[in-house]
Design a protein around this nucleic acid. Structure first.
Lengths: 159, 159
DNA sequence: ACATTATTGTTATATACTATAACAATAATG
DNA sequence: CATTATTGTTATAGTATATAACAATAATGT
């Protein structure tokens, strides 16, 4: 008989997950934890976090975006966007350009340094996903993306 | 031309997501946000959060679980489990039973009230998932679960 | 039997994410 | 010109997550 402190075999989980295993949401959470942990490591060398990375990518792909539009695109509250934009601006990766005719609004634009860092970070995230999803066929990966995007794009449409 | 403050058509998102859309992780995050928001609403009437719900389910399905085992099962730090178990204990949904021969450890067990609440909460989560994934065929839902669980179960095995 | 090492649960602390409310400045509307 | 709405910001609170350190206690090694 094993001593009590010996770790249970990793290949043979000895917990009863029968209830939780029925739920897609549970698997989504656990799987996303794995992805997020690896993504966090991947982005660390660029001194980016998931939110600042996402914001940078969206600003690069959508010149002249306003903060409100960026918050909507990221599905976060406007108030919580401020520190994200502040950080990207402080690092001179983006600028808050003034909008002619509207003194309230900014037009967010990436700098050259921002676009360069973005390109590198995207390449690193591509490698991170290739690593994580290497066991998934191209067909299954496409199906996964389709199912997940159906879920959140439809939810965005219903807002 | 539309006035500037008019909301863009919801059916026709006018953002360029071409970079982010390539990433499974991005879709996982966005889709999970949707699931989590609905789950939060679902659990609110039971005064449960996702973590206290998960803990309760695991304790019901695994009598005599230790706190360390529960933390492992939930993939969270032992330190962060304390307030979760505290709350379930305070609500008399679970008890911290002593372990004969080991004064350090507890055996976590659900009370009758805990099992009853768990049963109702699980039923509500079943309905929440049926609502959210109604557009997904049974086959596709199974494929989604398989892909996601492959990802996180494999990661758990590699720890 | 005793010293050493490991485990269990806890406390403290820090960071990040998320939600809500309120506000000033400014634009749009009536 | 008064009223309403928008943009961005500040403040605050709650939750989740990570790390370090510790006391009490069990397991291990000699």
């Amino acid at each position: 008989m094993k001593a009590k402190h010996e770790k249970a075999s990793a290949e043979q989980p000895d917990y009863n997950y029968e209830t939780l295993d029925r739920f897609v949401g549970y698997h989504m959470k656990r799987a996303f934890n794995v992805v997020q942990a690896d993504l966090t490591e991947t982005l660390k060398s660029f001194e980016l976090r998931m939110l600042t990375y996402t914001a940078l990518v969206l600003i690069v792909d959508n010149p002249d975006l306003s903060q409100t539009q960026l918050a909507v695109a990221m599905d976060i509250e406007r108030a919580n966007l401020v520190v994200i934009v502040d950080e990207l601006e402080r690092r001179e990766l983006i600028v808050r350009d003034h909008v002619p005719g509207d003194r309230r609004a900014y037009a967010l634009n990436a700098t050259l340094a921002g676009r360069r860092l973005c390109k590198k970070a995207v390449a690193a995230v591509v490698a991170h996903e290739e690593r994580l999803f290497s066991g998934l066929s191209v067909k299954k990966k496409a199906a996964l993306i389709e199912a997940l995007s159906d879920l959140h794009v439809n939810a965005e449409s219903n807002e």
